[in-house]
Amino acid sequence: MDAITAEGLVKIYRTRKNEVRALDGIDLTVGEGTVLGLLGPNGAGKTTTVRILATLLKPDAGRATVAGFDVVRQAQQLRSVIGLSGQYAAVDENLTGRENLWMFGRLYQLSSADAKQRAGELLEQFDLSDAADRVVKTYSGGMRRRLDLGSALIGRPKLMFLDEPTTGLDPRSRLGMWEVIRGLVRDGATLLLTTQYLEEADELADTIAVVDRGKIIARGTSDELKSQVGGERIEVVVRRKEDISRAGEILARQDSTNPQVHSEEHTRRLSIATNGGANRLMQLMRDLAEAEIEIDDIGLHRPTLDDVFLSLTGHVADGPKPDAEAVSHAAAAARSEKPA
C-alpha cells in the first residue's frame, strides 16, 4: 500500500499584483517503508508540497492521502501518525531540550510519563543528553536541528516529512544528520525528504522526484536520473593539440557501451561518459602514460543539481550552488576547475 499519494496538487499564492502558481499539478506516491527525495531549487514548490501533505496548507486543487487519510477531510487523524521537521528549527527557544520534547509529546497526546520517557530516549539517541536541561537558546544550529528532528519523532510516527533537514548546516553536522536519518530508514520509517542537494538525495532516498516551477519534471532512482543526465564523465585535458585524436582513441576504448568521445580543439579537453568510476580513471591514466600523452588535468566529473536541471529543463537551477564537491581530481597537481 502506498503511504503517500498525491494527484494534481495545485497551490496558488495570490498577492495584490499577481498570482504565483507555487504548485502546478504535483503527482507523487511514496511506498510504505521507502524514502522519496524531492529534489529542486529554492522556490520550486518542495516546501509547499510538504506543507500540504502535513496538513498545514490546503491545496487549491487536487487530492492527497497520507497513511490512508485525506489531507483535508481527515487532517486531525492524519496528524497523529506523522512527524514533521522543517528547515527552521521549530522548537521553543525559552524551554530546555527536555521540556520541548515533553511538551510536544503531551501535545501528541502521550501520557505525561510516556512523554517523559520518550524525551529521555530521544535526547540520548540524538546525543543531546548533556544539553538536555539547558535552554535551547544556548544550542548550536546543529543541536537545534537534532532537537527539531527529535521533536518530530516523539510520537513514533509511521511517516516523516523532513523539509531540507541539512540546509544551513556545516559539513560535519550534515554528516551527523545523514547518519541519524539513515538510522530512521533502517528502522523502517517512511520518509519524504526535500533537498537542494543531489548528493543528499542520492545518499538517503530510494527514489527521487525532481521538482521545478511547481511541477515534477523527472522521477526515478538516483541511477536512473544520473543516466538521464549522462552519469559520471571522465574529463581529460591534454597538453599538446596533436595528442587529441590519439587520446580520443584511448578514451573510446574505456567504455565499450558508449564510445562517444566529446572533444574540444581549442581547450584540448576530452570527455566521455563512464560508469566505471575511479577504477576506470586509474586505467585511463596508465594507458595515457603508456602512450606517452602528457596531460594537464584529468578528473571524474559527477553530475550536480545544475547538470540535472540543465539536461532536464535547459535552464540552470535558480537556487544557491550545491556545495558538494563537483569534481574530484585524480591528478595531484590539478588546477581548480569549475564544472560546466
Binding site: 506543507r51 502535513a54 496538513t55 498545514l56 486531525q76 487523524q77 496528524r79 497523529s80 506523522i82 514533521l84 522543517g86 527552521y88 528549527a89 521549530a90 522548537v91 521553543d92 510536544f104 501535545l107 501528541y108 497526546q109 521533536s151
Partner: peptide, 12 residues
Amino acid sequence: QGIIDRFRSLPM
C-alpha cells in the same frame, strides 16, 4: 517562528 507550524502539525 516555526513553532506554530509544529503545533499545527500535531494532533492537538
